[in-house]
Nucleic acid binder design. Structure first.
Lengths: 338, 338
DNA sequence: TTGAAAGCGCTAACAC
DNA sequence: GTGTTAGCGCTTTCAA
């Protein structure tokens, strides 16, 4: 390339990087030759040489074959967009508990020269969960509740959302409300449980171990857990599910027991995944916007990296979407007397 | 790191790369120190130095905020898995017609040091479409029908699938069958059109311009196109849609016209996206497995890169999933006579 | 079994 | 304006 143009390597570098100390003519000539030869500076060498682009990584624990909720994809595309907007490079990294034993979080980042990471799917019992805290590289935990110098969490206000939903159900006359929660090791589940319990307590309603099952965010697991709920919580009139996927499992179990939704029992989901609007004539649920979350996460990371800003937990908006799986509950005796 | 261990940089490199010409004790010592210091060789420097990992790239034209069909995500995770299996690095690259004017395909690859690419979403009118042909870097075109020395296509046999569907509809007694196709510039659409036309011709059934609409793979566009179909093709009893998403739009339009599915008119989709099973009691459709496609694509690329193998078009299996949107069609006079 | 030296393709600091 | 030199962090050759 330099030979072809009859100039030094340095001049080529300057010309292509838009420095001012190169004669316009030579600059133009170099650019043309580069175009003709399809020459492009090697990113690795540039990085080593000093002109490094910043690297963002999306670190997913347990990447699945299918993304039924569209959450991973949505966040991914949002993050990607943010990277593009700020001229950052973007890579995906996956991990799981086993891998985390072999390669430390810091090593992983150093190896790939990562300047900032967005993590998701990390449970509190995985090795990286603790490593993150002491890391000096900026990180935002998607749907997590972290807080340290270089780490912040990003999520909707899960406790409040769960409170809203429960409160709404109570307002509709329901008193026996069960919670089909996710995983006990997931932060979001802990927060939603809190919101649910608070609303129930404020209304003076009964709750307890029996009224809360963990469906592991899995359709089939939720399906099975529903029968336990039905057997242990006599007279339950509403089930609040911590994910739409679990709501699907719950609905299936309910149908098998001959219970009609919403006539006999009300169901609310969480996430508003694409199928939600088609389930049971429309599933009432809490909508999150994964694309926005990803984009905002990337944006925050940008500020953490370039301005060394620190963040507390960042909340993003959610929306309560009322469709057709909730009905006002009239106590039996009232109905009879009418 | 080298200083800490009291050896030369060279020795550290050898120890960490598992070379045999380093004393077991020193090797062990170096490894321990590396672990303690969380040392990891910089991937960029390694790459420059000669020890380069191969890079696979997933090049998507027009990455969307949401992946309603789950196709992009599925392929992505399959490709990622294949990369992992073969110790390749994996990155995502997006492009669009505008970007393609600025940076050539080869430049893009050179810059990122890419050894093999998987492309998807590229239409035949985009600049890269032609550039690909002459490229010396291995490439597999997802859902495309390429063929050159270093490029191959990967897809289901779209013509055959469309033929199957149409033939099935004909076997069910339908004679007035319309096709809601995708984009005229998409290879898959061209193939499906071919299969549809062939089945119709073999059965001696009427077809023509009016019987084929392009819904641009878009729900709303398909919705609008349905009315044209209904108005121009009097007595149509079945609509075969080139994507489930478009089938949703079609169903919506049909409902507005007061047509019941499958009683009044039959509908078949394509893809078997997650919502398909919930639509209209279950949408009859052709199932593709994006994860498998991605994985196989990565696998092929691996062989192209490491063994310089050449491939013709590669076909992957599909499955015709019969659910509840097709009904046998009895000609009016027969029904009357019963 | 170890280390010194060269070089990967670039950018940066400084001299010409 | 342009070129020379050094150095980024590694791997590889080759000599010790």
């Amino acid at each position: 390339m330099a030979r072809e143009a009859g100039v030094s390597i340095t001049t080529v570098s300057k010309a292509l990087n838009g420095y001012s100390d190169v004669k316009p003519e030579t600059k133009k000539r170099i650019q043309q030759i580069a175009q003709r030869l399809n020459y492009m500076p090697d990113a690795n060498a540039r990085s080593l040489g000093g002109k490094a682009r910043k690297n963002l990584a999306y670190l997913v624990s347990g990447l699945a074959k299918q993304d039924e909720s569209g959450f991973v994809y949505g966040m991914l595309s949002g993050m990607y967009q943010a990277s593009l907007d700020h001229q950052f490079d973007f890579i995906i990294l996956t991990t799981n508990a086993a891998k985390q034993g072999e390669l430390s979080y810091i090593q992983l980042c150093r190896q790939k020269n990562i300047d900032g990471v967005l993590v998701s799917g990390l449970n509190i019992n995985e090795p990286y969960y603790r490593e993150l805290m002491n890391s000096e590289i900026p990180c935002v935990v998607m749907e997590g509740e972290y807080k340290s110098k270089n780490v912040c969490g990003l999520s909707i206000d899960n406790a409040r959302a769960a409170y809203d939903v429960t409160h709404y159900l109570i307002g509709m006359g329901h008193k026996k409300i069960a919670l089909m929660n996710g995983k006990s090791t997931a932060t979001v589940s802990q927060r939603r449980l809190k919101g649910y319990l608070q609303a129930m307590a404020e209304a003076g309603l009964e709750t307890g171990e029996a009224w809360v099952e963990n469906g592991e965010f899995d359709e089939d697991e939720a399906y099975r857990a529903t029968f336990r709920l039905l057997d242990n919580c006599l007279g339950v009139t509403a089930i609040f599910c911590s994910s739409d996927l679990m709501a699907i499992g719950v609905l299936r179990a309910l149908k098998e027991r001959g219970l009609k939704v919403p006539e006999d029992i009300s169901v609310i989901g969480f996430d508003d995944i694409p199928v939600a609007r088609y389930i049971n004539g429309g599933l009432t649920t809490v909508a999150q916007d994964p694309y926005e979350m990803g984009r905002i996460g990337g944006e925050i990371l940008y500020h953490m990296i370039t301005e060394k800003k620190e963040y507390g937990h960042v909340y993003v908006p959610y929306q309560f979407v009322k469709r057709n799986t909730v009905k006002v509950y009239y106590p039996a005796n009232r109905t009879v007397n009418t």
